[in-house]
Each structure stands twice: as C-alpha cells, then as structure tokens.
Design a protein around this nucleic acid. Sequence first.
DNA 1: CGGCATACG
DNA 2: CGTAT
DNA 3: GCCG
Length: 601
Amino acid sequence: MSAPGGGGGAPAAAAAPAAKRQRTMPLAGICLFVPVKALPGGSAVFAAWKRSLPGLGASLTQDGGAAGITHAVVPQAPNGTANWGCLPPALAPPGPSGLLFVTQHWVADSIRRQQRQDEGAYRPAAARAAAPPPKPAARAAPSRAGSMRKGEDGEALPAVEAIKAWLGPLWRPECAEMDLAELALQGDYDEERCRRIGNEHVVEALRELRKFEEVVEALRELRKFEEALNGQWLKNPQGKAVSNHKSLAYMHAASAVRTCAYKLAPPVRPEQLPLVGDFTAGIITEILETGSCAQLEQFRRDEPVRDSRGGVRADSAGAATRRAFTKLPGVGAKVAQQWWDRGLRTYEDVIEAAASRGLGAAGSKPLVLNATQRFALEHRADLLEGTAESDLEEMRAAIAASLISLTGARGWHIEIVGGSRRQQRPAADASGSGGGSSSRVPPKQHHDADFMVTHHSYTWGEDLIGSLRDELIARRRILPPDTGAMCMLQQNRAADIEAKLMDDLTGASGELRSNVASDRLDHIFATFRTAAGRLRRMDVILVTPDQLPYALIGWIGSTMFNRFLRRHMNHGLWRIKGGRIVRVPDQAPPINRRGQGPGAK
DNA sequence: CGGCATACG
DNA sequence: CGTAT
DNA sequence: GCCG
C-alpha cells in the first residue's frame, strides 16, 4: 500500500487526526479577495461563499488593501476571458509575492468537492497564456506506471506525465497504478466544465462522428453477419453480442477530451490523451485547426466517406439522412438504410411513400411501416423535441398519485435520475447562470425523463410495476402499447435475482451464462401525455431501498460511465449482478473462453 | 490478435 | 433488430 | 480504432 501523496506520507492510522482536520478544514489559512461587483452572480454568490467558506477554514474580504490575502478571484466570462480590470492596484498582476490568481470556478469547485483544488488548473485566462498547458513531453523521470511510448523524435514519453496533465486537479498518486478502465472513472465529465476549459466543441464533433460511424458500421456488420450466419443476427461466433467498435473509439475519444483539464491546442499527439491513438489524434487536430474534419463534412453532406487509402467506404453514403431517420423510435440502421435505398430523404418523404402504398413507383414493393414507426412519424415533433425540466413535476405527480391509489401507502420516494439528473448543477456552483451575463443558455431538453421510485417502509408485491403501468394508462397519463407508442414493461422475478446472486456467491455457474438471466430492475418505458397534450418519453424504475444506491449509479451515469465501470469491474474481483456489487468468490484471475488466464499464450 | 458492457421486448 | 442506462 |  502506498501512502497517499500530495498531503502527507504518514500511515493512515497514525495520521487520522491530521487527515480529519485536512478533510474538515481543507482551505485553512486561505484569505480570498473577491471583487463582488465583477463577480457573475454578484452579491448572491458572495453571500453563498460567505456561508460555506469559513467552515472550510478560509476567510473572505472585499478590501483589496487587506493584509494577508492569499488568493484573488479574477472573474472569468463564459467565453473564457478574464476580467483583470476589477482588481485593485494593490493586487494587480503580478501582485504581492505568493498571491495566487484564480477564477470563480476554483472557489465553486473547492466548495463542491470540499477540497482545495489545484490553483494551477483554475488560472484566469491571461495568466494561463503566459504558462502554456502542460506538455507531456517533459523530461520527468520515467515512472514504473504506464507503458513507455515512442514520441515523434523517438524519445520515450512517460505516460504518467500525460495522465497527470489530463486529469489536472483530479490526479492522485494512486492513478499511476490504474488501468485505463479505472482511470477513465476518475474523470470529471461535466459538460460545463469542459466548455469553460474550451474543449467542448471538439467533444461535439467527435460525438457527431460517432453517430455517423454508428449508422455506417452497424449496417456493415449487420450485412456481414446476416451473410455469415444465414440470417442469425445478434451473436458473433463466440456467442457474444456484436457491437460497433469504430464508433466506440470515437466515444472513448470524446470522453478523453471531455475530462481533459487543459485547453487542447493543435497538434494533439496520441501520447497526450488516453484512449486516443494516431488516427483520432489526427481528427482532433483537424477539428482544432479548422473547426471540423473531412469525414464530418462528407457525413453532413450525405457524401460517401473515403478511407485512408482513398477508397470509398461501403455503405457510407447518406449517413446524415439515415442518422436523422434513426432518431425516430423504432427506426435503426437497417430500416434507415431501406428508406434511403428507396430514395426517401425526409420524414415527409417516408410518410408520403407509406400513404401511397401500392400506388407508388411500379416495380417497387410498397413501403410498409409498423405501428411504432407510424406513431413516431406522426408525433415526431413532440418526440424529437425531448423533455424539458418544466415537464418533470407533472410526471412526478402523476406517478405519485397512481402509486398512492394502488397501494394506499403514502411517502413514496420519487427521485429524478438519468440525463436530466446529470445536468443538475450543485447549489454551490454559481457558474454559467450569472446574473448580468448576456449569454443566456436555453433550458436543456432531454430525450426522456427518468424517475427512480422506492418506499422505505411499505413492501410491495412483484406485480406492482405492471399495476403501475396499467394505472397510468387508465388515468390516461401514459399511452397504451396498441397506439404504437413506446410502452414496455420489464418485470424481474425476485427469485431470479436471488438465484443469480447465489450462483455468484457459490461460484456455481462460474463465468458461464446461467439459464436465469435478470440483471435489470423493474422498469417502465413509456410515453407520457402532459396536461397540455404534448407527448414525452418517460421511464419509471422501481427499486427496493437496499437496491437504491446501486441503481442510482447505473441510472445517473452516462452510457460511457457505465461501460467503463462494467469494464473495470470485469477486470478485477468484482461483478455487478442483480443490482448489487458482489465479490467474485474464487480469487483466481478471470479466465478467457479458452480456459486460460491472463498472459497465457 | 482478442476484447471492447449489458440486458430486455 | 429494436430499446434502455 | 485503441489497448495490452
């Protein structure tokens, strides 16, 4: 066990009182100058800091001439420019020796994390320009951790230095020992943070590329496996589900950029960011230099994309239109390709082709839509619009009313999870919504709203989830399945979960697939009808109180977070089963499908 | 060169 | 082959 | 496509 660095090297037990003081007074000795008038949020933010900071050991002053000032806040606008003009002459740069300049986000993040953040990562813009972002090519002593890679000039680059710069204030010495899956879990994937660092436009481009690869690659693999397996889809020869790994690479790259602690500048080298190799580093560099890249531009224009050797990539034409089609529920890569192949280019084209069934072009089979697709096309305005925060309370009330009516029990705990929960800002963070700012961000829309429901004393039967769905339908708050609206139910039998857990604990089934498969929670995927008649996607998850903490991890986490978490768990001695995290009984390393352990040849 | 998250309808 | 995190 |  290595002692935690950064603070003290004493063994944990002996350092307990110091560690406790460190935890409770992480900002001890800090005196913060705050130019209240120039601060986004102004006096309201100052008042909030005044409530929080003394408890962390820091003091505040608005008097630029006060003695003992250690930190000066230089407010930073959303566009990244710093307002140095608001500092009094006594604190003007470079200021008294030892004075540190920080943005308001240093204060907000220090309060939010209850931990002193690295001032270097929160330097106001002009000061940062003087000190360029950390270059991983520094000649630091090679560390044991991380593989050595070859730099441009053949010089070995210590990966740890790159990781340190990448994680910035989130880096801990323990990170040097981590594999990539665990390392990825250390990041802060906050969109606003990424935006103010200045990398969010790169993330957006990479995510768009990923969507492109999804429709192209999914179709390509689809055709390959249908050919090879005579129509038997969904499994590769090893019986594992197939997924699209080129698009996965883009998702990884987007994650790496999202959590990068410094503003990226061209050229971006593959050594700089984890999960980013030669190919993607080139893409990122092109995006940084031009705002886009060749693939993305071709994609947006529905043009076929050429590979690195200049050949046209199969099935890459029409990706933007096909991507638009797949936004409809019930339309995936295959249906979108069929529509494209018929010459359809807009939703209106599809509706028309389906309406003139039989009257259409001679020789072509009529376009037949299923109920889901018809519904999605009819209500595409509502469904593509997504769910605003203003819809959430109405949904919560409808769920609560149905539950009380069904069970007679009050006191249901209904918690917002999913993407809308991830977007919620902690109260201490005043950034982005500052009072006088002219850049007002429109309220964010989410593709759906997710509610996690539990009750701490009432015990319900196994059919509550089904009853809840029926009740919501009866009250006309969600649409029944025969409309074509999404209305799916997932109901696990408790016995299945217990059986699976027992298998895990006894090692009975090992790595083999048990015939009992229920990893998921009781759950409704539905289409909610608001009082104003708008249709919104809504999910309701029912959990027991002891499942709640585990369920929250999965349902608040993003797809990428969940994949990194699952991958990390699978690398080690832990598994997520039946909504719980369980230790793998046998401490032998995991074996592959040939029955070999890691490192076996 | 194998693995890449995982499950249900 | 579609959905979900 | 990236990693070990």
